[in-house]
């Protein structure tokens, strides 16, 4: 769907994007991750054709970006604004028409989304009278009212209460199921874990990693295993011998424990199961993958250590 190839951009001799190449597949939810100042907003503005790269190029459905393609792109910026004097419906119609919809089509789409989000009663409310959360919802609708093929969401969950976070997450999933490609820029790693298929990690304008979420987490794994069992703790510890290191343990009820182990040498989970089978009754055993939060922190820490 999108190929960003060797893109660089400087502002007043400061390099904000350095030879970045990212690829997004159709129907994917793609996380664009990075600390503040990593270059995410610059990249997003390039996709929205607000700025052009100094070098490199961006392909959209295999062709260079052109203004008419903006009609198939939806954008929810991080810093959001609406015209406070306009009414909700009027505002959505205005933005839908700017995205190239005809007046009747815009009207039909606005009607559909207002009823879909069950906010038809807001139709004639002035934006100035909406609460922050309500305004956020209107902004979210504005990004998808023209039913884009590519939806760029910059921190879409910020400012929402947990109920609305759930609503927005479900909506993003539903859009994906309809074939919409979604670029999600966020610091909310829980949402990345939950809904993203793949992600790219930017730091100081450079691409640190890009892969599927599973691969990013697996590759960052430290070989830790979670074991839940019923039996004696001493028997469990003895069974580990020198092949596994017990790093954490907690009793969850009388005679039941959950432990975190680290594998030593070339041992595997199967080896562990063999060692434990005659000693304790194993209830659960699984390889522990780091969360995207940990992956993110690890990558950035490593980069900073290299820099230092």
């Amino acid at each position: 769907m999108i190929q960003i190839e060797g893109v660089s951009k400087s502002y007043q001799r400061k390099l904000v994007l350095d030879d970045v190449s990212i690829s997004l597949a159709q129907g994917q939810i793609f996380g664009l991750l990075g600390p503040n100042g990593a270059g995410k907003t610059t990249l997003i503005r390039m996709l929205n054709q607000m700025i052009s790269p100094d070098t490199g190029h961006i392909l959209y459905k295999g062709k260079p970006l052109i203004p008419s393609q903006l009609q198939t792109i939806g954008y929810l910026p991080e810093e959001r604004g609406l015209y406070k004097n306009m009414e909700v419906e009027e505002h959505l119609l205005f933005l839908a028409r700017l995205r190239g919809l005809s007046a009747p089509q815009a009207r039909a789409n606005v009607q559909h989304w207002l009823s879909h989000f069950d906010i038809e009663s807001w139709r004639h409310k002035r934006i100035a009278t909406l609460s922050k959360g309500m305004a956020q919802k209107v902004q979210f609708l504005a990004a998808l009212v023209h039913e884009p093929e590519l939806l760029i969401l910059d921190e879409p969950l910020s400012g929402f209460d947990p109920m609305n976070v759930e609503l927005i997450m479900n909506e993003i999933q539903a859009l994906k199921e309809k074939g919409c490609t979604i670029l999600l820029s966020t610091h909310n790693m829980k949402s990345v874990d939950e809904i993203c298929d793949a992600a790219a990690l930017l730091h100081q304008g450079r691409l640190l990693a890009q892969d599927s979420i599973w691969n990013l987490r697996s590759n960052s794994s430290k070989g830790e295993i979670i074991v839940r069992f019923e039996g004696h703790m001493l028997a469990f510890a003895n069974a580990l011998w020198t092949d596994f290191e017990l790093t954490e343990q907690k009793q969850i009820s009388e005679g039941r424990f959950e432990c975190l182990l680290r594998i030593r040498g070339n041992r595997t989970v199967n080896d562990l199961m063999k060692s434990l089978q005659d000693q304790v009754a194993v209830e659960r055993i699984e390889k522990r993958l780091p969360s995207m939060q940990e992956v993110f922190v690890d990558f950035i820490s490593q980069k900073q250590q290299q820099h230092d």
Binding site: N48, M50, P77, E79, R80, G81, L82, Y83, Q139
Partner: peptide, 10 residues
């Protein structure tokens, strides 16, 4: 108000 960012995307 940053509405300009939404407008410039269109």
């Amino acid at each position: 108000s940053r509405i300009v960012e939404v407008l410039l995307a269109s």
